[in-house]
Design a protein around this nucleic acid. Structure first.
Lengths: 319, 319
DNA sequence: TCGCTAACTGAGTAAATGCTCACACGAAAG
DNA sequence: CTTTCGTGTGAGCATTTACTCAGTTAGCGA
């Protein structure tokens, strides 16, 4: 705690300060430049950097009527515990950007609870976005457990740090699932799950108080394919068997029933049990995901949903 | 819950949607105009309105090193429970704009607690800004009680709706203090406090679990003078007697000791007792307030502080 | 010591924004 | 029925912002 005489601010400090003056103080970049004794261009760079690095958080504080209506309609149609619909960002934009802040707010509700919870999490871009959008909250009373294996076929772990990043942010203990996402054989999967440490994490995940997952589609742009967990051949085969969507790597059909087929015999993590009363929150938006989300809602793999306006409309149109 | 066929969005809905697209979606106003089928100027108006009406909340998510250092220094120097320092907004800017979001975040910490709390509040511009910056949180378990009377000499109540506005936002029961801010005579004050309903509110305020107050200076630009609670003559008289600052209308000297003099004999509300262990949070920033804040900290009328960078430096320079 | 790369800087410019103005519409008052 | 006032609308323009590009410097390896 040395009070440095010359604080020698880090570049991020500068960016934060510039962003503060710009977004909170409403100064122009010229004024900021004068204030900090730098050139206008430098000020502009700092401001844009503050935004790019997520130092500045923006939230909408108003429930748009149309979205409220959609939430009610979704809740009625699918018997949801909770639905959250945010406005779309227009065609072409990444829907994750839209739902991430709302998803973060939903997660915060659980994190703020004082009673300890076990929170089980999947992976995927949507959850990653959610964690990035989350304000740091200290919630060491909760336990964060991964639903999905953390051993990728190519060894890249970057995709699985959702639980870890979240744990970093909220200072909670976390339990990764030390198994391959999808094992080459059903036997190898069984061997992993016979190990006591794996059992313990799996039990924790299966009995979690709260589940938060993304929903993947099984069309030709399936995340499982893009991320290299299933081959093109496996995907085609499962599509033929009715594969429509996937939660935490477990594939289900248009009605939301898990297939007993293909990679589902070798998927390493814990299957999200359908129909349980505990909150099971799906974070998912995008036109191509609609059939998958529909299935997951129908069989109650998830009973709460954060999505965007166009996706909500597509889901309701499907009824 | 009628799902209207034509949602007929309210003007605020439109503003919220435009603001969402602009700040969260990163679209240009031209794109928003195209998306919503309106003119560019209209889009610009909606965006600026969304910001003006506080539909869009912006927060800085980075603790600037220099501010952290100042927080530590303040905590050490004054033995604070908690200190929060935000960067200044540059000379000439209203420091309330700077501290309001941070103050709101501090208040939120208490509001989020599940156990019921009694929260006592003062008034003033800083608290008003804090409430405006607060995200709506449902916290009906808490009780909000005013420390200060709500009867102004000129009858204008606009200044005293801090507790009411807050109660609106968080849906908590609130207890205004039905006495004059400052009575003309000590006898009238005593008469009010003899009334049982007043007693009850005063007891509640005196035993609150959390105190949140602004700090007023007693220099020539004293808020008490500007708002018409004390006359110029009274102010001069009290200045001569050492008056330096004021919390909830109760005047104290440079050491933070309450004066037994002047308006202090006729002030209607409840005095914040110094030195108690419960959190007593002061929200105050501005060069002219430094001596007042210093006094309040020194005698521990407040034991937590939200302020801005220049004020923090001024306080430390005074040691 | 000498390139070489990569990051950073500042100038200029195109784009986007916000501000002011004049006008149109509708409601309330005369 | 007319007038007047307030509110909202679109156009033009000054300001502000973001992007591109060329030049510079610092760090690094040969």
């Amino acid at each position: 705690m040395t009070p440095r005489p010359d604080p020698e601010p880090s570049p991020q400090d500068d960016a934060a300060r510039a962003g503060w003056l710009y977004y909170l103080g409403g100064l122009t970049q010229d004024q900021i430049a004068a204030e900090l004794g730098i050139s206008r261009q430098r000020a502009q760079r700092l401001v844009s950097r503050a935004m790019a690095e997520g130092l500045i958080h923006v939230r909408l504080n108003h429930r748009i009527g149309a979205c409220l209506d959609l939430e009610t309609a979704l809740t009625d149609r699918f018997g949801l515990t909770r639905a959250r619909v945010v406005p779309g960002l227009g065609p072409g934009a990444d829907p994750v950007r839209a739902v991430a802040p709302a998803a973060a707010a939903e997660l915060e509700r659980f994190l703020r609870m004082t009673d300890p919870l076990t929170i089980a999490l999947g992976t995927g871009r949507a959850l990653r976005g959610m964690v990035d959008a989350l304000d740091p909250v200290e919630a060491p009373q909760h336990r964060l457990v991964s639903l999905i294996g953390n051993i990728a076929p190519d060894g890249s772990a970057s995709f699985f740090d959702v639980v870890m990043r979240l744990a970093d942010k909220v200072l909670a203990p976390h339990y990764p699932m030390p198994v391959p996402v999808i094992s080459p054989t059903a036997e190898e999967r069984a061997a992993f799950h016979a190990l006591p440490p794996v059992r313990r994490v799996a039990d924790l995940a299966a009995t979690a108080d709260v589940v938060v997952v993304g929903v993947g589609q099984m069309s030709d742009d399936a995340p499982l394919l893009k991320d290299g967990f299933v081959s093109r051949a496996e995907l085609t085969e499962m599509q033929a068997a009715g594969a429509t969507g996937e939660v935490a790597g477990w594939v289900f059909d248009a009605e939301g029933n898990y297939l007993d087929f293909g990679t589902n015999r070798r998927t390493g993590g814990v299957r999200v049990a359908p129909g349980l009363p505990r909150p099971s929150l799906g974070i998912a938006a995008g036109a191509s995901k609609a059939p998958a989300i529909f299935g997951a809602l129908k069989s109650r793999i998830i009973n709460s949903l954060v999505t965007d306006e166009p996706t909500a409309r597509a889901l309701l149109a499907r009824s």
